[in-house]
Structures are given as C-alpha cells and as structure tokens.
Design a protein around this nucleic acid. Structure first.
Length: 436
RNA sequence: GCGGGCGUCGUAUAAUGGCUAAUAUGCCUGCCUUCCAAGCAAGCGAUGAGAGUUCGAUUCUCUCCGCCCGCACCA
C-alpha cells in the first residue's frame, strides 16, 4: 500500500473525473486545480464530515464565513505583511537565490564565493489586489493567506450575539491563497487552497489540558471519521526553533503520503497573540469577563488548522488499491462508505431486455430518492461496470436480474470483497447508512 | 525562483524533416451477452501555445506555458 505512486492517483483522478489541472484548455495555471463531478462530491463529503464532527455535534462551537478580502490592517497586525515578505538575494556567480535573513555573512552557500550578492528583493507570498476602481497604494488589499484572521475579526461579534461560556470555539471553512514559490506534488501545495480552521478560546490556565483534548479529538477524526490508517499518521512535536514566534506548543499531524511523510494538519497554541493584536491595534476591547465575576482577560487560543486538499490526498492515497482478479489488474478505491461520491450503482443485468431495464429504473429512482448519490450504469457488460465503479470507489453495485422480477430481490456486490449478496428491495432502500 | 529532464487522442505508449501520425485501452452507436474488463460491426479522439529556419516542421532553433526530479522555499 505504501507503494502507491502519486502519478497513479493523478491519472485516476483525471481519467475518472475527480481532479483536473486548472485552466487546462489554456495550457494550465501552475498551482491551481479544478474539481470534477466526483471530486467536488468527495471534497464536500470531507468538509461536511468535518463540520458535522467539530461544529454541529458540539454545543460550544460557532461557525462563521468571513470575506476573503479583508482590511489590510489585519495583515499588518498579524505580521503577514512583514513576515510573508522574504527578502531574497541572488548570487551573480551561480544565480542561486537565498533568503537574505537566512544567510551568514556574504558567502554564497551554493558556490562558496563571497561578495557576489546583489541587492535584496522583496517577495511577498500574499496575492495583492486593488479594492475599488482606483489602482493606487491606498486601495491595496490582499487575498487572505489563511482563514484564521476572519475568525479573530469576528470574535467580538460572536461574543456580542451569544456570549458563550469559555471554552468555546469559532470554526470556518474557506479558500485561502498563497503565492508559493513552487507549488508541487499535485494538490498538496497549491496557490489556491481550502482550509478548515477552528479558533478555540480558553482560559490561559487551562491550555495544557485543552491542547491534549484537541490532540485526542483530531486523532479520532482522522481515524474513525476519515478512515485513515492509524499507522500512517504521525504526531510531530514541533521544536521551539521551528514554531511560529507566538506559539508555545505546536503539534503537526503528519501522514505517509505517496510523496513521503508530510504535514497533514497543524495544532497550535497561539496564546493571546491574535486577539491582543486587535485589542492593541484596532482599539477594540477583546477582553472576556467570566460571568458573575470581575475576572477579565484576553482569552487564549488553540488552533487546529486542516488543509482540505491534504485530507483529500490522504483519503485518496490510502484508499487506492490494486489487486489481481482472474489474472487481470483490478484498481479500486476503498473509500469509506460515507465519503464515496457514488454510494450505489444500479444496473440491469442485460441492457437489451426491456423488462429488466424498466425494473432497474424503478430501483434506481427509489434509491436515488432515498440516498441521492446513486449512479445509473448500463454500459457494456456487468464485469465492465463493476470495474468502472471500483475505480471511483462505489461501495455497492446493485444488479437487477430475472429473479428480481419474481421476488423483488437484487444482487448487491461489494466493492472490497467482490462478493455478492441477495438482498430484498425494501431492505436495501430502507437501509440506514451513515448520513452526512 | 535556480539547475536538469520532459510535453503526441480522455489514459498509457509508438513513430516520423514529406502520403490520411500508429497501437492498446477508453468513449460512442448498433447487435449480442443470465454476474466480474467476452465477441462482432461502425464511429469519435492528439503532436501544449507562439515565432523562426525550410519548398515543407509534430520532428530542428528560440520564447512562453505546463509537468517531473534536485536545490531553495513552505509565514
């Protein structure tokens, strides 16, 4: 399973309508990806599952959906304008480029020459744009490089509307943009991506136990909900040197991707850094008063930050299977049933028998009405349909044959075992599955 | 962003400075088919974009775009 190659996933994703290169007909645009009919469903299933797990099924969570364009003051205060701007210098000898603030002296780390560096140039990883019709310095804004700030800027609004007890959290899913120097590895690092983030507001005295609680919650989500194999998930305690300056503890959840072990999501204790910024810079009181007391303080924050595309890549690569069937290679996606873009494929055993087709249509309509994500498939022969559905991860293929006409039972074929069971129609339609 | 490699139907591959760019698979239409890519027949579908050299370029050259590998980057 660790032998899954990224190119196999990319090829399947394109061939079967999950993920295409962005702007492909115009030659593409580096770092962008488009989701096809199956991909968008898979993606939404994952996002809905996350929302259901961390927001809908909890009492202390609140959702928001903030604007992508924000007042540039946000990015000044957050440090993004300063720290996302890396001064780069170029060596005139070997043409290598390096971050000026990472160099020791004027010796080129590549070719070893000294005194070959030109002037440092700024490179900002935020996408800059202009708000309003006038293109001048005053109109500059940025596409958000993270969704977190849209939560912090609404912290006060949520307080005013709900005044929840601590601890409570605000969650958001949405697009973020980073002008990466080199987007790579399929959807793993792209310039436009989607985040799912929570800012969990706590009393500072409780941060350690809250942090542990989030570690457990995340583990549970990755394994029980997303169905990722526990042995492929690794928790990395990020050492102080590698942490953001405001973070007192960060744990990266890493995953064994086809491209190697890489970060899947991050969990960071951000202290009161962000709210304090707003408190100090925007002149707004961000303090929280414990109800019935005069105990006032700026809440601290624990931030789980998920990348949607990385979840998708983890799910796809851990679901990708190849095995042998009658001497032929069989490719299938062992997706958890509740994530699969198509849950049932319905076929008449034979396409040229009108009574079978009519009955199959009935079954299809009934299942579609009940479950939504059901596909009609009468292409070629039955074996071909099975293989086709295997590749897109459809857990169940329902086949209507001559017996169905007699006793209202159908064949349900299982994707992973390829075994077939005879199931009553009523039982199938009323079957409770894990809904999203 | 640097260095190297690469770019041919949806996918995977082949070939060529000159006839209609080939094969498999896929897709599609018809026939057939009583459970794991069967068969028959017809069809669709590509030289990434632009410029140059040339009588003629998919092939050679250049620019751009994109992909892959390494370096760097990944707040």
């Amino acid at each position: 399973m660790s032998e899954v190659k990224l190119e196999d996933i990319v090829s399947l994703a394109k061939r079967r309508g999950f993920i295409y290169q962005g702007s492909e007909v115009y030659g593409g645009l580096s770092g962008t990806w488009d989701y096809g009919p199956l991909g968008v469903t898979l993606k939404r299933n994952i996002m809905n599952l996350w929302w259901k797990t961390f927001v809908d099924s909890r009492d202390e969570m609140y959702g928001v959906d903030a604007a992508i364009l924000m007042n540039p003051g946000v990015w000044k205060a957050s440090g993004h304008i300063d720290t996302f701007t890396d001064p780069l210098v170029e060596c005139s000898n070997c043409k290598g480029r390096f971050r000026a603030d990472h160099l020791e002296g004027d010796k080129c780390p590549n070719c070893g020459k000294t005194g070959t560096f030109g002037e440092a140039r700024q490179f900002n990883m935020m996408f800059k744009t202009n708000v309003g019709p006038v293109d001048d310095d005053k109109s500059i804004s940025y596409l958000r490089p993270e969704t977190a700030q849209g939560i912090f800027t609404n912290y006060k609004n949520v307080l005013d509307s709900f005044y929840p007890d601590l601890p409570f959290g605000i969650a958001q899913m949405g697009k973020a943009f980073r002008n990466e120097i080199s987007p790579r590895d399929f959807i793993f690092r792209s310039r436009e991506f989607e985040q799912m983030e929570i800012e969990y507001f706590i009393h500072p005295d409780e941060w350690e136990q809250m942090f542990e609680g989030w570690i457990k919650g995340i583990r549970m989500f990755l394994t029980s909900e997303l169905g990722l194999p526990a042995e492929s998930i690794h928790e990395l305690e990020v050492p102080e040197d590698d942490r953001a300056h405001y973070s007192k503890r960060t744990v990266d959840f890493e995953f064994d991707f086809p491209i190697g072990r890489e970060e899947l999501l991050g969990l960071a204790y951000r202290t009161d850094f962000d709210l304090k910024n707003i408190h100090d810079n925007a002149g707004k009181n961000m303090e929280y008063t414990i109800k019935g007391t005069n105990d006032k303080f700026i809440p601290h924050v624990i931030e789980p930050s998920f990348g949607v595309e990385r979840m998708i890549m983890a799910v796809l690569s851990s679901a990708y299977r190849e095995d042998e069937q009658n001497g032929e290679k069989r490719i299938y996606l062992a997706l958890p049933e509740h994530l699969a873009p198509v849950k049932y494929a319905v076929s008449p055993l034979l396409k040229n028998k009108p009574e079978l087709v009519a009955k199959a249509r009935e079954v299809y309509d009934a299942l579609k009405k009940k479950h939504g994500n059901v596909m009609w498939d009468d292409n070629g022969n039955i074996g071909k349909r099975y293989r086709r559905q295997d590749e897109i991860g459809t857990p169940y293929c329902v086949v209507i044959d001559f017996d169905t006409l007699e006793d209202d039972t159908v064949t349900v074929r299982d994707r992973d075992t390829t075994e077939q069971k005879r199931v009553g129609l009523d039982e199938l339609v009323e079957r409770q599955d894990r809904s999203l």
